[in-house]
């Protein structure tokens, strides 16, 4: 069975070609902004100040910038892992489940660990969470490699298994027996991630930023990165070129799951103070947007994470400043992403 060579996901064209037609970009942006304005107006707000509030609200005070950076952390970490998978066109839709498994297994380790010295406990818990996320991703990769099970279906369905699994774990084995609600004990203070100097943001952000050059190097300068990109261009061709695609897919899924697991455990140690039924915040899905909006490139993902985090925090602010329903803000956020997508595409024409 021969297959065509589909266009590679990441094209490198000359800089000049990427400018495209500014008229197109402006046009696309204008259409979406007008639509968004209509939504805000219908919802009872003032469209012009609403747009301004998203940006000025988020960057207007130290506390909201802190909130924004807090949102960036999981999006960046998961997004980096997804970018690697997506460059290989391995559609991991299961980051949400991998995030949850990392959060719960790593969190359980932190709570149950006999050693309670921060120097040991924090790195160990982070590693355990990462490994757990990688293992959840490994299932998907292995199913694909051994039986040819499509990764979209297994990763998607494993999200549900993870959600129900966590619900069971916090209701029974991990439940704090002295407490009323189905939730674990507090994460011991020795395991809490410290805040970064001068910021109220936990160290997970720093970990994410450290991984940015690492991923750039790995994808751009190593045989592994090359193989993943070949895989993404054409699986059959990659096989023909002597790449063990099955092994590579398993590896890619483990890395991608590991990043999601790391994001999960970092969130538990840094923000959520215990394990409960409310850990599935949707970062695993939102990060799909950041990964693709950032064109699957680490620096792009930093920017797209900041963008998504800004409209998330700004959205909560607009809800209050304009007295519009939160649902209107979801619509606005979606339109923002669509503008960016279309403008980006037209600019590259």
């Amino acid at each position: 069975m021969t297959a065509p060579a589909p266009p590679p996901a990441v094209r490198s064209r000359r800089w000049k070609d990427r400018i495209g037609s500014p008229v197109n970009v402006v046009g696309a942006a204008a259409v979406a902004l007008v639509l968004g304005a209509g939504v805000i107006a219908v919802a009872g707000g003032n469209p012009i100040t609403a747009y301004a509030d998203i940006v000025t609200g988020t960057f207007g005070s130290r506390s909201t910038i802190t909130l924004m950076l807090g949102e960036v952390t999981p999006l960046l970490l998961i997004g980096l892992g997804l970018a690697i998978a997506f460059q290989g066109r391995v559609w991991n839709i299961g980051a949400e489940g991998q995030y949850l498994v990392g959060a719960v297994v790593g969190g359980a380790f932190a709570i149950l660990s006999p050693v309670q010295a921060s120097v040991v406990l924090i790195p160990a818990a982070l590693l355990v969470g990462t490994a757990a996320g990688a293992a959840w991703g490994w299932i998907v990769g292995k199913f694909q490699a051994v039986w040819g099970v499509n990764e979209v279906i297994s990763s998607l369905l494993l999200n549900y298994v993870a959600i129900f699994g966590v619900a069971y774990l916090v209701r029974q084995p991990l439940r704090d027996p002295d407490y009323y609600l189905p939730q674990s004990k507090l994460i011991p203070s020795a395991a809490r991630l410290p805040d970064l100097p001068f910021l109220d943001v936990h160290a997970g952000l720093l970990i994410g930023l450290i991984f940015v050059p690492v991923v750039i190097y790995a994808m751009g300068r190593t045989p592994f990165g090359f193989k993943v990109r070949v895989l993404g261009m054409n699986r059959d061709a990659a096989r023909a070129a002597g790449i063990d695609t099955n092994r590579l897919i398993v590896k890619v899924m483990m890395i991608s799951g590991g990043f999601a697991g790391l994001a999960g455990i970092a969130q538990v140690l840094g923000v959520e103070s215990r394990l409960n039924n409310n850990l599935d915040a949707g970062y695993g899905f939102t990060a799909i947007i950041t990964a693709l909006l950032g064109r699957m490139r680490p620096l792009g993902i930093v920017l797209s994470s900041v963008f998504i985090a800004t409209i998330t925090v700004g959205g909560d602010i607009v809800q209050r400043s304009q007295q519009v329903p939160r649902a209107a803000v979801f619509v606005l956020q979606a339109l923002f992403v669509i503008v960016l997508l279309v403008a980006d595409k037209l600019a590259r024409r």
Partner: peptide, 13 residues
């Protein structure tokens, strides 16, 4: 939303 990070987003301001 129900997770702590989301509550923080509305509580802090």
């Amino acid at each position: 939303e129900f997770e702590t990070s989301a509550v923080r987003r509305v509580l802090t301001p």
